[in-house]
């Protein structure tokens, strides 16, 4: 498969306490992930709302991956379960708008897990490459 020059842009919202520390670990360990991934650090995924994420799609993002704290490990206690509720509403709206499930996912990374972060974003990007262009 030849790589297009206009590689799709992928936005990864990272929780400051888990996924972002995973990203930093990945950097420190010299692990690579696709250049199309544009991380956006937020203090907590619960800070996001459907409008903000749909806006990424409006501006042309090929995919949006939300990476937060694993269940039971939220830095603030309830942020990741709030994020999961928000994600349910977001996903229903995104489906109506024709966004496919592989373009929008919620997942988690344990603090400091550089390899997990790099693998998850790479897998997400790989799945998007397989999506036929519409």
């Amino acid at each position: 498969m030849s790589m297009s020059l206009t590689e799709p842009r992928i936005i990864v919202f990272t929780c400051n306490w888990s996924a972002y520390s995973g990203l930093e670990s990945a950097g420190a360990e010299g692990l690579s992930y696709p250049a199309s991934v544009h991380p956006v650090r937020v203090m907590c995924l619960a800070r996001l709302h459907p409008g903000l994420i749909l806006r990424a799609f409006e501006l042309g993002a090929a995919g949006v991956l939300l990476l937060g704290c694993p269940p039971g490990e939220c830095h603030y206690g309830s942020g990741n379960s709030r994020a999961a509720e928000m994600f349910e509403e977001l996903q229903a709206l995104a489906r109506l708008l024709g966004v496919r499930d592989e373009q929008l996912q919620l997942d988690w990374v344990t603090t400091g897990q550089g390899a997990t972060f790099a693998n998850k974003v790479r897998e997400f990007a790989d799945r998007l490459m397989l999506v036929p262009a519409t």
Binding site: H49, L52, R95, L97, G98
Partner: peptide
Amino acid sequence: CTHGATIQTWMRMMADPEIKQE
């Protein structure tokens, strides 16, 4: 914009001729 501009955003997304809604 109330509701984090969610509604205005989906309206603008629908202005894309390529969108395939479900």
